[in-house]
C-alpha cells in the first residue's frame, strides 16, 4: 500500500514538474489544465490584499479621470482608466473604461452600452440618449448579451425615464450637486432600474447604478477624479 502511495505521490509530483513547453504552438491540453490548476491554487493561497482606504488626498495625486466600478453580485471593486474612442467632447461621447486586467465597460454619454472580459458580456445595446446628454431617453432599449453556446441573446426592454429632481451626492470627499435621473425598464420577465446622477451644469454622469445584463447584474459606477 505504501509503495503504491509512494508511486502515486511521485506521479503527481512528476506531472506538475514535467509539464513544460516551448516554441510557437499553443500549450497542450494537459499543460493548460495544469496551468489553470496552478493559477487557481496560487490565487487561493495568496493573502487577500486589503486595498488601502481611498481618500480624496490620495485621489488628488492621480493624473486623469478614474471610474470606480463595483460588481454588486460579487462585491468586487476596480478602478478603470478611460480611452475616448468616438465623438470626443460631445454629449454622447463614447469612452471605453478599462481595468488593469483588461476588462472594459463602455459608456456612451455615461450610459453603459457594452462590456468585455467580464463573462456573459453586454455585446452591444440599442439605447437613445436625451438631447444634451442627460442620461437615456424613454422608449425601447435592446440589450444584446453574450449567451449560451456562442450566441447572442436579444433582450428588449421598455423603459421610462423620470427626473427625480436635484440630489446632492458625495463621492469620496467631493460633494456634487446633481440631478437624479431614474430609468425603469420592463422586459425579459423582470424589471430593471437604472439610476443616474447627472451634473446639472455639463451633463456629465458622475455616478450611476446600471444593469449589465442577466449574467453580470448591476454595476455601480462613479467617477472619482476629473
Amino acid at each position: 500500500m505504501s509503495a503504491f502511495l509512494f508511486r502515486l505521490r511521485g506521479l503527481a509530483l512528476l506531472a506538475l514538474l514535467a509539464a513544460c513547453q516551448g516554441g510557437t504552438d499553443a500549450p497542450t491540453l494537459q499543460l493548460q489544465v495544469i496551468d489553470a490548476a496552478r493559477e487557481s491554487i496560487t490565487a487561493k493561497l495568496a493573502p487577500k490584499s486589503e486595498r488601502p482606504p481611498v481618500t480624496r488626498a490620495v485621489l488628488d495625486t492621480l493624473d486623469g479621470a478614474f471610474l470606480e466600478i463595483t460588481r454588486e453580485r460579487e462585491d468586487l471593486t476596480a478602478f478603470l482608466f478611460p480611452t475616448p474612442v468616438r465623438g470626443a467632447g460631445t454629449a454622447d461621447e463614447i469612452i471605453v473604461w478599462r481595468t488593469e486586467t483588461d476588462e472594459t465597460v463602455t459608456l456612451r454619454g455615461g450610459v453603459l452600452i457594452a462590456t468585455r472580459g467580464l463573462g456573459g458580456d453586454v455585446l452591444s445595446s440599442e439605447v437613445q440618449l436625451r438631447p444634451g446628454g442627460l442620461g437615456p431617453a424613454s422608449g425601447q432599449r435592446v440589450l444584446h448579451v453574450a449567451d449560451k453556446d456562442n450566441k447572442q441573446l436579444t433582450l428588449p426592454l421598455a423603459c421610462d425615464v423620470v427626473d427625480r429632481g436635484p440630489a446632492r451626492i458625495e463621492i469620496i470627499g467631493w460633494s456634487l450637486p446633481t440631478h437624479h435621473v431614474q430609468e425603469r425598464c420592463e422586459g425579459g420577465g423582470g424589471t430593471v432600474v437604472n439610476d443616474y446622477w447627472v451634473d446639472a451644469g455639463n451633463g456629465l454622469v458622475w455616478q450611476s447604478r446600471q444593469w449589465a445584463g442577466p449574467h453580470i447584474g448591476y454595476l455601480r459606477l462613479r467617477q472619482v477624479t476629473r
Partner: peptide, 23 residues
C-alpha cells in the same frame, strides 16, 4: 437584498421590490 448603498444616496432612491430579469 445584495444591493448595497453607495455614497450618500438616500435609501428611498433605491429600487426595493423590482426583480431583475434572470436566466
Amino acid at each position: 437584498a445584495l444591493a448595497l448603498s453607495s455614497g450618500a444616496v438616500a435609501a428611498e432612491d433605491r429600487p426595493v421590490s423590482a426583480a431583475e430579469p434572470l436566466l
